[in-house]
């Protein structure tokens, strides 16, 4: 196996670092990362391992690469990602997976506000976001497709998501592992306790999460999950009156 190329990010601004990444072929390890933005933007066909804390918009428009973060990530991870995998061995900030269309994002810990906004799916592309801990308010707002799983590890006995989950949701599904029923939900979603057959849809990603971060998949899956789905595919079609003026 070819060994990874190491890049020391210390003292490099984001433009210099990202240029170096683009000019280096194959898999790479970035050491000493400290807030540089846009790492892995648009990248495909390689693995980028990051030691430290990457800055905002990690893996934006990514198209098939794998990013592993040995630390925390900041805001806008995987913005408009088309394909690939982002694995964060820590927490992630706000607006995680905005407009994501394909691929998977695994966050070991929690994620901030507005996770998975306007996530969508298309043909064989069905993106997955798994958040191990808690997720903030406005989770899955305007969600049009794909799968969000919040495992709530460390939040037992509490609802692991904030308010207004799924506002404007018109596709996809959100699974929340919680012994307490989530409240403060908008009119556009239906809430039900996931049945064993519903849980089959999340068995693979939960197993993946467990494998990546050393958790017990069976134990996680044996918990109570609440399933949020949109109650209409076309939520706004009755809102308007044609006015030919």
């Amino acid at each position: 196996m070819m060994s990874d190329t190491h890049i020391n990010a210390a003292g490099l601004d984001f433009q210099a670092l990202n240029k170096k990444i683009r000019q280096t072929a194959g898999d790479i390890q970035i050491e000493g990362c400290c807030g540089q933005r846009y790492i892995g933007a648009g990248q495909s066909g390689r693995t980028i391992t990051i030691h430290g804390t990457p800055g905002n918009a990690l893996g934006a428009y990514m198209d098939g690469a794998v990013i592993v973060v040995r630390g925390n990530a900041q805001d806008a991870v995987g913005d408009t990602m088309n394909d690939g995998r982002i694995i964060v061995h820590g927490n992630a900030g706000d607006a995680l997976g905005y407009g994501i269309r394909g691929g998977a994002i695994y966050i070991r810990g929690g994620a901030g506000y507005r996770t998975g906004i306007h996530m969508k799916e298309y043909q064989e592309k069905k993106p997955v976001i798994v958040v191990g801990g808690r997720a903030g308010s406005f989770l899955g707002e305007y969600m049009a497709g794909g799968l969000i799983i919040v495992l709530g590890i460390g939040a037992e006995g509490d609802v692991p998501v904030g308010n207004f989950t799924g506002t404007g949701m018109h596709g996809g599904a959100i699974y929340i592992r919680s012994s307490v029923q989530p409240t403060c939900l908008p009119a556009q979603v239906t809430l039900e306790e996931a049945l064993p057959e519903d849980k089959r849809a999340i068995a693979a990603p939960v197993a993946e999460y467990a494998g990546l971060f050393g958790a017990d998949a069976d134990e996680l899956l044996s918990g109570t999950f609440y399933l949020l789905r949109p109650n209409a595919k076309n939520p706004y079609h009755t809102l308007y009156a044609a006015h030919l003026r």
Binding site: D75, A76, D79, D94, A95, Y98, R101, R114, I117, H118, K120, E121, Y122, Q123, K125, F138, E141, Y142, A144, G145, G168, H170, G171, K233, N234, P235, Y236, H237
Partner: peptide, 21 residues
């Protein structure tokens, strides 16, 4: 149109008022 927008046929294409990021 579905292929070009990369969303399923018949699904509403909703562009939120703000960019939420």
């Amino acid at each position: 149109v579905s292929r070009t927008r990369m969303i399923p046929e018949g699904a509403d294409a909703i562009s939120p008022a703000p960019h939420h990021d």
